[in-house]
Design a protein around this nucleic acid. Structure first.
Lengths: 147, 147
DNA sequence: TACGGTCAGTCCGGAATTCGGACTGACCAA
DNA sequence: TTGGTCAGTCCGAATTCCGGACTGACCGTA
């Protein structure tokens, strides 16, 4: 008996993108990483419609990626901070930035320069938590679920 | 004299997302990484409207991330393969997948199981190309452009 | 040579989303 | 009382996305 393909593919990439893959979401997360936690800052730094950004922030809070925190009572003002889950998106943001720096360079050089604690300009690769070895297509294999 | 803020922020994350940030784009790239190079496969595995997917593939080819390659002359059939730039998106895809595996788990366990060549199930972190040390918010600092 | 199937799209009109900009409401400072 | 800041909401027009039907090139087979 042949099973019918479950389509579309069940995949963590797709499930993650359902949460952070809408337009402006990842830029809002970038802003919080950069320390711009207030709505007004995000609007100008991102260039998103206020409307849409307010919706995205709601979605990210509901998803447990951002948390609203009151920083002023009079007038009532909230800021957005990263949860643990939000902080775990750091590799996604950095990987996107590194790709842009490499493949969409500006004449003026990288618009935001980062350095590792070792002193070098930041260039990264993925490494295995267990052995520390480089992770790329050639060092990863798929384990097929046995039936 | 005070300079007027350049808004929105000039940023490689934003420039990268202009190319790969539209709905379905990253899933199309995922498919090619997984070996599904043909249009029809992508339609069923992704679940995107054929219409929209055809547009995304055009955009990705124009951006130099995918390349069209003829694999049959009669009937004329093309497949999509990764360019070097496309292969460099591997860390983005893997980071998204790892985040989903951790924060949006399925009862049935991770839908796609990967292993590193060392034998361990794949768990990754970002590492510095220079010193190999872990890259996270606490080990990265921003270098402000001096005026 | 007629029929059915595969593949890679295009075309369609309705539905949903996004857009910029105006507006609201709470508050502060002069 | 006037003006400004901040965090949104509301609006109607413009754009994008959607599922599904269709096209065109070809193959297999009967």
């Amino acid at each position: 008996m042949t099973a019918i393909d479950a389509t579309p593919r069940v995949c963590s990439v797709a499930r993650t993108l359902e949460v952070v893959g809408e337009k402006w979401s990842l830029l809002a997360i970038r802003e919080v990483f950069l320390g711009a936690r207030r709505f007004e800052e995000m609007v100008v730094n991102i260039g998103a419609p206020r409307d849409t950004l307010a919706n995205r922030l709601r979605t990210l809070v509901d998803a447990g990626i951002l948390q609203r925190r009151r920083y002023s009572d009079r007038p009532p003002r909230d800021e957005y901070v990263l949860t643990d889950a939000g902080r775990d998106l750091y590799p996604v943001i950095i990987s996107l930035m590194q790709w842009g720096d490499r493949h969409l360079p500006l004449e003026s050089g990288p618009p935001m320069r980062l350095a590792h604690e070792c002193g070098s300009p930041l260039h990264t690769h993925l490494a295995c938590d267990s052995c520390g070895g480089r992770v790329d297509r050639s060092t990863v294999r798929r384990i097929d679920a046995a039936g």
